[in-house]
Amino acid sequence: MNSELAGSALDARHYDVLLSATPRGARLARLLAVEQLRGWGLPLDAPRAIVAELAVNAVTHGRVAGRGFRLELLAWPGLLRIEVADTRGDRLPALCPPGRGLVLVDALADRWGVREGPAPGKVVWAEVSWGATSRRATPRPPSAHGTSGR
């Protein structure tokens, strides 16, 4: 976790929900995230698209019959962390054609990556910042992408 997050633990907000690994579950993840972020008074555009892409990826590439995926939102002043956990730890995401979903996540998020999740799964996460803490104002190195984060 970032050091800037440690000092603001009292200001943290948290939301998580378990959803079915179906197209309907992916759509519901986006709708629930938007309503939660709206309730917290946070920006919607980039997070909405990131949640949509990560949820669709969980349903498309991380699905195991009979198991769902988890959406988690963690917010601190100036920073939102989106996490989507699925049950396929053996299928790691990558920035490569033909898919465009992670290219979109890479463009919209300040940082993103993947980590081991509850066995046997993985967690794909993305961070979006705004205001004084935004890192988007600084250029990203061309080699920084994917599982290494930024």
Score class of each variant (00 low, 15 high):
L31V: 12
S20D: 13
S129K: 08
A46Q: 06
G89F: 15
G89L: 14
V114F: 03
V56A: 02
L74D: 15
L18D: 10
L18I: 03
L73M: 15
A52M: 10
L71M: 12
R81I: 15
R63L: 09
L95S: 07
G89V: 13
G113W: 09
A12I: 04
S134R: 09
P97W: 13
Q36E: 15
A109R: 02
L71G: 01
G149N: 06
G149I: 09
C96Q: 14
V17M: 08
W76A: 09
L44D: 07
V124A: 03
D45R: 08
R30N: 00
D86K: 02
V56T: 03
L18G: 03
Q36G: 06
A58P: 00
R67E: 10
S129V: 05
T87C: 04
P98C: 10
G113E: 10
A52I: 03
P23C: 01
R115C: 10
T138V: 14
R24V: 12
S143W: 12
R67P: 00
P97C: 13
R150W: 09
L10H: 04
A85D: 06
R88F: 08
A29F: 11
S20V: 08
P98A: 14
R13W: 11
N2K: 12
G78Q: 07
R150Q: 06
R63H: 12
D110Y: 07
V84Q: 05
H14M: 10
D106I: 04
G149D: 08
V34F: 01
G146K: 02
A75G: 15
W76Q: 06
G113T: 11
A109N: 05
A12Y: 05
S8K: 04
A126D: 07
A126M: 03
V84G: 01
T133W: 10
V17W: 08
A6D: 13
D16H: 15
G7T: 12
T133S: 12
L104H: 08
V128D: 02
A29C: 06
S3K: 10
L71A: 07
P141H: 07
T138I: 11
A107C: 04
L5T: 08
H145V: 07
C96R: 14
G131N: 02
A65W: 01
G39V: 12
G99L: 08
V17K: 12
I82K: 03
S148H: 09
R100V: 15
R27C: 02
L10G: 04
E72V: 15
G117C: 08
I82Q: 02
E127H: 03
L32Q: 14
E83D: 15
V59T: 14
P118Y: 10
G7F: 10
V56E: 11
I82G: 02
A26D: 03
G78P: 08
G62D: 01
V64N: 00
R27P: 00
L79S: 04
F69A: 03
G146F: 03
D106P: 01
A12P: 00
S20I: 02
V84M: 02
W130G: 00
V56Y: 02
A137W: 15
L10I: 06
R150V: 06
D16N: 13
A94F: 15
A126T: 04
A132G: 05
L19S: 06
R88Q: 03
R13N: 10
A52V: 04
D16T: 11
E127T: 13
G149L: 09
R30Y: 02
A132S: 12
A49P: 00
L42D: 07
T22F: 08
R38E: 13
